Computed example of a mutant assay.
Amino acid sequence: MNDEMLTRCEEVMRKVCEDFGAELKEFNGESDHVHLLVHHPPKVALASLVNSLKGVSSRRLRAEFTGRVNQAIMHGRFWSPSHFAGSCDGAPLQVVKDYIAQQKRPD
């Protein structure tokens, strides 16, 4: 993914979060992955939110950036089937925000 694709991905993921009553606090990515800091209400199942984030963004990015997405690399998938989610309750949020902001975003 390049900067343009990551910018669009952020827009799409921000809207998905809003639809779930969650807030995308920080977003950044590299050519092959993204980092998100999301505040979500306890009633929202994290797995459902992640599935929607990946599913909606995959459909939109494939449709809008046809020809730039190499489906052969991911065997037809846009995102890896796995994800990592960690809780940062009690941790200084600025540390997490700084980590995400410092990702080496491609041109």
Results as ranks from 00 to 15, higher is better:
Gly86Val: 12
Lys54Ser: 03
Val12Phe: 08
Leu53Met: 15
Glu26Leu: 02
Ala22Asp: 07
Gln103Thr: 07
Gly55Ala: 14
Val69Asp: 01
Phe20Gln: 06
Lys97Pro: 04
Asn28Ala: 02
Gln103Asn: 13
Leu37His: 05
Gln103Arg: 03
Met74Lys: 08
Lys43Ala: 09
Phe78Gly: 04
Glu23Ala: 07
Glu11Ala: 07
Glu18Ser: 15
His40Tyr: 13
Gln71Cys: 11
Lys15Gln: 13
Gln103His: 08
Phe65Glu: 00
Ser87Val: 09
Ala22Gly: 10
Ala91Trp: 00
Arg68His: 13
Pro42Gln: 12
Ala72Met: 13
Phe84Lys: 06
His40Arg: 11
Ala47Thr: 12
Tyr99Ala: 15
Arg14Leu: 07
Ala47Ile: 12
Pro42Asn: 12
Met13Ala: 03
Ser48His: 05
Ser52Trp: 07
Asp19Gly: 15
His33Glu: 07
Cys88Trp: 05
Pro41Trp: 06
His39Arg: 12
Asn2Tyr: 10
Ser48Asn: 14
Asp19Phe: 07
Val96Tyr: 01
Phe84Met: 11
Cys9Ala: 13
Leu36Asn: 03
Trp79Gly: 03
Asn28Phe: 04
Leu46Met: 11
Glu10Ala: 07
Asp98Met: 02
Ser82Met: 06
Thr66Phe: 04
Val56Ser: 06
Phe20Thr: 10
Met13Asp: 03
Ala45Ser: 13
Ile73Asp: 12
Lys97Met: 09
Lys54Asn: 10
Lys54Arg: 14
Ala85Ile: 01
Arg68Gln: 12
Trp79Ala: 03
Phe20Lys: 04
Val56Thr: 14
Leu49Cys: 11
Gln71Thr: 15
Lys104His: 12
Pro81Phe: 07
His39Phe: 09
Lys104Met: 11
Gly86Asn: 02
Leu61Val: 13
Asn2Asp: 15
Met74Phe: 09
Phe27Gln: 01
Leu36Pro: 01
Phe20Arg: 08
Met1Ser: 10
Phe78Ser: 01
Pro41Glu: 06
Phe20Asn: 06
Ala45Asn: 09
Met74Asp: 06
Pro41Tyr: 07
Phe78Thr: 11
Gly29Lys: 00
Met5Lys: 05
His33Phe: 06
Ile100Ala: 05
Ile100Met: 05
Phe20Pro: 06
Gly29Trp: 01
Phe84Ser: 11
Glu30Leu: 04
Arg62Phe: 14
Tyr99Glu: 11
Cys17Val: 05
Pro92Trp: 08
Val12Leu: 10
Leu93Pro: 01
Gly21Trp: 06
Ala22His: 10
Lys15Met: 11
Val96Phe: 00
Gly76Pro: 03
Leu6Lys: 00
Phe65Pro: 00
Ser82Glu: 06
Lys25Pro: 01
Phe78Tyr: 13
Pro41Thr: 06
Asn28Thr: 02
His33Ile: 12
Ile73Glu: 14
Asp3Gln: 14
Ala63Asp: 14
Gly29Asp: 01
Phe65Asp: 01
Lys97Gly: 00
Glu26Gly: 00
Glu64Ile: 02
Ala85Asp: 00
Cys17Tyr: 00
Pro41Asp: 10
Gly21Ala: 10
Thr7Leu: 05
Gln102Val: 01
Glu30Asn: 05
Asp3Lys: 09
Val69Met: 04
Gln71Pro: 14
Val34Met: 05
Asn28Gln: 02
Gln94Tyr: 08
Met74Ala: 11
Asp32Phe: 07
